[in-house]
Design a protein around this nucleic acid. Structure first.
Lengths: 348, 348
DNA sequence: TTGAAAGCGCTACCAA
DNA sequence: TTGGTAGCGCTTTCAA
C-alpha cells in the first residue's frame, strides 16, 4: 500500500483567516456571523433594507479586521455595468497643456464617481485597439487623437460602452466629438503674420513621427487663411534637433521668407536661435510665431509671439460624459472646443 | 377583460442577435451550434484539447459575425488572476523624460503580454488609494513617487498583487524598490560647481506644491556634497513665473552667491534670464546649472550646463516585474536606478 | 431584520 | 472530439 502526501488547503478550518488569498465577502460574513447578503447591504449602505446598528458594527469590524477589499470585477460582472471611464494614453509624449487638461478631467470625473483609467495603448492600429478596450467593458471611452473608425465605435458600443467621445480633428460616425481643429491654430498664426504685413510665410512641419496629426491641419489652416491673398505658404520640414535647425537656417536666404509659423513654441525657440546665429534678424528680416504660450518662450529676446490654445474645461467635459452615460440614446453631440488667441510679443 | 401592452424583449427568438447587449460566448456557441466549452477552447487556442478544423472555423466565423469581445472581468474572475499591471498616474505634470520612460515601459510590458493601466489617482492620500487600486486586483502595481506606506503594500499584496514596485526616493517595507535618489542630482550639481571653484552656492527650491518630493532631496544632496568643505548652501524659493524670478534676481547682490543649482533646466532658464536682465554676468559673476538636459537649455547664451538623468530602461524594469510576478515569494529587490552625469556647457 | 439562492460571463475539469 | 457543469465574488430579489 502506498501513501501520498496531500497538501491541505489553508482555507481549512484550522486556519480561519489564512492570508494566502484575498478575503471575500463570505469571509467577512463568516467572521461577523451573518450572511453574505447582510455584508453586502452594510458595506454598500443599502437604504432599501434596515439592518440593526449592532449588526452593522459587527460587519464593519470584521471587514476592517480582515482587510477586506471588494472585488471590482466581480461587482461589475454582477451589476452588468461599471463606472470605469477608459482613456487610451496618447502614444506620443504630450505637453503640459494636455497633461493639465487630463488631470483636471480626471478630477472632475472622479467627483462624479467615475474611475478614470488610462489604457497603455502603445501603437496598436485603431479598430484593433478598440477590441482590447472593449474587453474591459468601460462605461465610457474618451479617445484622444484619432485613428478610430466607425467600426471601432460600433465595437465599443456593442460591448456596453454607453458613451464614446473622441477628442480629435474630426468626428467619427456614432461617437460624440470634441472637435479640436488644429487648423485654427495655423489659421490664427498665418492671419496674424499677414496682418503684420508679411507675405512670404513659412510653416514648420515637425519631422517627428506622430506629430503629423497636428502639423498637417496646422499647415492646412495657414494655407486657408492666406488663400486668395497672394501671400505664399512654404512647408518647412524640421526635426527637433539643433543640426536640423542650423541646416534650415542656412537655406534661409534662398527661401526668401519674411515670416514663419514654427508649429509650436519649442520648435519656434529652436528655429529662432538658429536664425539669429545665421545672422537673420528677428523680427526685422523674419517674423516668428509659435504656439502653446510656454513660459520659456517669453525668456528669449525678442520675446516669442505665440498662439495660445484653450482646451475645454475638465468639469465641462465630465458633464458631457455623464450626460451621455445617462442617456445613451441621445444623438451624438459635436462641439468645437479648441479656442485660440494670438499673443503678440516681440518676435512678430 | 383588459389587455396590457407587453414589450417583447429583443433577445427573443424573433431577434436572434439583438444588438441591445454585448454578445456572450453563449451567443457564439448557439450560433455555431456548439457548446460554450468548445467556444472557449477555440478562441483561446487551447492546446490540451483537439478540435476539428471545421468546428474551429464555424466558431471563429460565429464570433466574427456577432462581433464577440470576451469579457475581461469575467475571465479574470474565473481565472483568479489577471495580467493587469496598474500604475497610478503621477499627480503632477511630469517632464518628457518620465513620459518617455513610462511609454517605453508600457511597450516592454506589453511585449510580455501584460496590460498596463494608469489609474487616475487624483490626490488621494497613500493607503487610502491603495485600497482603490486593490479593488482592480492587478497582478502587479508600479507606484511612482511615494506616499505609500507598508500598510498600503500589505493591502495590495493581500488582495492578490504578486509584485509591488515603488519608484521613488525611498524603499517601502515589503515592496520592491527602484530607488530614484534625487539627492544624487544635487550632489553632482554641487560637486561640479565646487570643482569649478565656486564656494557660495544657491539651490533653487520650486514653490510649486508637489515638487517638494524632488526638490528636498536635491537640496539635501547639494548640502551633503559640500559638507566639510567650507562652501555654503543657500536655499532659494522660486515660483515658476517671471515675477518670482525677477524678485529673486533683484536680491542677488545681497545674497552674494557665486553659483546656483536651479533645480532643473526650466527653472534654470527662467532664473538665468532674470539674472542677466538684472546685470549679473553668467558665468563670470554667477555660474548656473540645471538638470534634465533639455534641448532648449542649449539655445540660451551662455549654453546651459546641466545634470543629465538616466532612468532605468523599460525592458529592464519589465523584466523585474515579470520575475517578481513569477516568484512572488522572493525577497524584495532594491535597485538604485538613478544614474547621473554632469554636462558642462558654458554657464558654469 | 436576516438568509437562501440565482446568476453575471467565463474557463477547466470530467464524462461521454 | 465535444458537452455538461461547477464555481470565481458579488448583488439582489424573494422568503422567512
Amino acid at each position: 500500500m502506498r501513501y501520498v502526501m496531500v497538501q491541505i488547503p489553508n482555507t481549512s478550518a484550522s486556519a480561519p483567516q489564512a492570508p494566502s488569498s484575498a478575503p471575500t465577502s463570505a469571509d467577512v460574513a463568516r467572521l461577523a456571523g451573518v450572511s453574505r447578503a447582510t455584508v453586502s447591504y452594510v458595506l454598500n449602505d443599502a437604504t432599501a433594507v434596515r439592518i440593526s446598528e449592532a449588526t452593522r458594527r459587527r460587519v464593519r469590524e470584521a471587514a476592517r479586521e480582515l482587510g477586506y477589499v471588494p472585488h471590482a470585477a466581480a461587482r461589475s460582472l454582477r451589476a452588468g455595468r461599471s463606472r470605469m471611464v477608459l482613456m487610451p494614453a496618447p502614444a506620443i509624449p504630450v505637453g503640459p497643456l494636455y497633461s493639465a487638461f487630463v488631470s483636471e478631467l480626471q478630477g472632475a470625473l472622479g467627483r462624479l464617481d467615475y474611475t478614470v483609467v488610462q489604457y497603455g495603448t502603445a501603437a496598436v492600429p485603431g479598430d484593433e485597439a478598440a477590441r482590447a478596450w472593449a474587453e474591459l467593458r468601460p462605461v465610457a471611452v474618451l479617445i484622444p487623437g484619432f485613428g478610430l473608425g466607425p467600426e471601432g465605435v460600433a465595437v465599443l458600443k456593442r460591448s456596453g460602452a454607453r458613451a464614446v467621445v473622441t477628442l480629435g480633428p474630426e468626428s467619427v460616425e456614432g461617437a460624440h466629438a470634441l472637435l479640436m481643429d488644429h487648423g485654427s491654430v495655423g489659421y490664427a498664426a498665418a492671419g496674424h503674420l499677414y496682418a503684420r504685413g508679411r507675405r512670404r510665410i513659412g510653416v514648420v512641419v515637425p519631422e517627428e513621427p506622430g506629430l503629423g496629426a497636428f502639423s498637417r491641419p496646422r499647415l492646412a489652416g495657414a494655407r486657408q487663411a492666406l488663400r486668395g491673398t497672394g501671400a505664399t505658404v512654404t512647408a518647412l520640414p524640421l526635426a527637433y534637433e539643433e543640426d536640423s535647425a542650423t541646416r534650415l537656417a542656412a537655406r534661409w536666404p534662398e527661401l526668401g521668407l519674411d515670416a514663419v509659423f514654427a508649429y509650436n513654441d519649442e520648435y519656434a525657440m529652436l528655429l529662432m536661435r538658429a536664425l539669429q546665429d545665421a545672422g537673420v534678424r528677428v523680427p526685422e528680416d523674419t517674423a516668428v510665431i509659435g504656439s502653446d504660450d510656454l513660459l520659456l518662450g517669453r525668456l528669449l529676446r525678442p520675446r516669442l509671439s505665440t498662439v495660445r490654445i484653450h482646451l475645454p474645461s475638465g468639469p465641462q467635459l465630465a458633464e458631457l460624459v455623464d450626460r451621455a452615460v445617462s442617456d445613451p440614446g441621445a444623438p451624438p453631440e459635436t462641439h468645437r472646443v479648441l479656442r485660440v488667441s494670438v499673443v503678440r510679443r516681440d518676435s512678430s
